[in-house]
């Protein structure tokens, strides 16, 4: 059994020798022991992960707090977590997705809106450019009203009606209502997850097959697959649409979403400097589009992409930490 020891030692020596050139980044993060951990929420889309990575890396390196990132859908459980302090901050809330129950957390003060992120999102109906090359009239919803338009987008499952590709159920959406109220020959088929939507888009685009889907900007896929936003009847506050609380008779486009940031009410006491930093924290559409292709198309790690952005934009973020 002495061999056991010998093997162990050999293994360890090899590991130590080969691993000796490791960087000691964990020691240099500057996180000191007496500061509490700041927990960020990431929702399951890339832009959300990038915003949080930029903020979390700066909170660690500039303010010296350890951070933690929790991925969860944008739902009531997330707001419950913010309200009871399980998580401290969420940086990408789409106003069109706020439900009545979620609004109640803002109303009772347990979750605090700390201002706009800077980026403005836009949810809508999208088709690849090659669809418009064949059917230019489909740039607008009026081109989708005929039975022929439905048949053009039909799949084995929808028969002769068109397939509208719905999305992750936690995203704000009212496509089925729009289709009903605009009397379009389409059925919504929910992909169930963003991963499935992207896989479907990739497969359809590779074969040049038509697809009409729920998507949004800013995203890298719009550039990569050359997606075009189909125009719907223009949004007005009166047309009944207010996101997740949409009326049954909603018949107009999704509104533009000025994305905002929110924190747990307890953060101001727990870490006032983090609160101030997050209030100043701003990421614009241009910033997101600068980072998104690397993460969504080249498949780079979001942490690396965020670190590269921080590296390149010290002039922007230095104002947030002062």
């Amino acid at each position: 059994m002495k061999r056991l020891l010998a093997v162990l030692l050999a293994f360890a020596l090899c590991a130590a020798a080969c691993g000796g050139d490791d960087d000691d980044s964990s020691a240099s993060s500057g996180a000191s022991d007496d500061k509490p951990t700041i927990s960020f929420v990431v929702n399951p889309w890339t832009a959300s992960a990038l915003n949080v990575q930029v903020a979390a890396q700066l909170v660690e390196s500039e303010l010296g707090y350890p951070t933690d990132i929790i991925t969860i859908d944008e739902n009531e459980a997330m707001f419950t977590g913010l309200a009871d302090g399980t998580v401290d901050a969420v940086l990408e809330i789409w106003p069109s997705g706020i439900t009545e129950t979620e609004q109640s957390f803002f109303d009772d003060g347990s979750v605090v809106n700390i201002g706009d992120l800077g980026a403005v999102g836009k949810i809508g109906w999208f088709v690849p450019q090659y669809v418009l090359d064949q059917r230019p009239e489909m740039a607008s919803w009026e081109g989708l009203t005929t039975a022929d338009a439905g048949a053009y987008f039909a799949t084995a499952e929808t028969g002769d009606r068109g397939r509208f590709l719905g999305t992750d159920p936690s995203y704000s959406q009212y496509d089925a209502l729009l289709i009903d109220n605009l009397d379009l020959p389409f059925d919504v088929q929910f992909s169930g997850s963003e991963a499935a939507t992207v896989a479907e888009l990739d497969s359809r685009a590779a074969a040049g097959e038509p697809v009409l889907m729920y998507w949004w900007t800013p995203t890298a896929a719009v550039g990569k697959y050359d997606l075009v936003n189909v125009s719907l009847p223009a949004f007005t506050p009166e047309c009944g649409a207010s996101g997740a609380a949409a009326d049954a008779d909603v018949a107009c486009d999704y509104p533009e979403d000025p994305i905002f940031k929110a924190v747990s009410a307890g953060l101001a006491d727990k870490a006032p400097d983090v609160q101030a930093f997050l209030e100043a924290f701003t990421i614009t559409n241009a910033d997101q589009l600068e980072m998104l292709p690397a993460a969504e198309i080249d498949g780079e790690d979001v942490a690396d992409v965020a670190a590269a952005w921080i590296e390149a934009h010290a002039d922007v973020w230095s104002a947030w930490v002062s």
């Binding site: 739902n75 009531e76 459980a77 159920p169 936690s170 088929q189 169930g192 997850s193 499935a196 479907e200």
Partner: peptide, 19 residues
């Protein structure tokens, strides 16, 4: 339900994701 199966699978995914 995560890949378009609809019916109970989608309802289950949806229930969890929307709490």
């Amino acid at each position: 339900g995560l890949v378009g199966g609809g019916a109970l699978g989608f309802a289950a995914v949806s229930a969890v994701k929307r709490s």
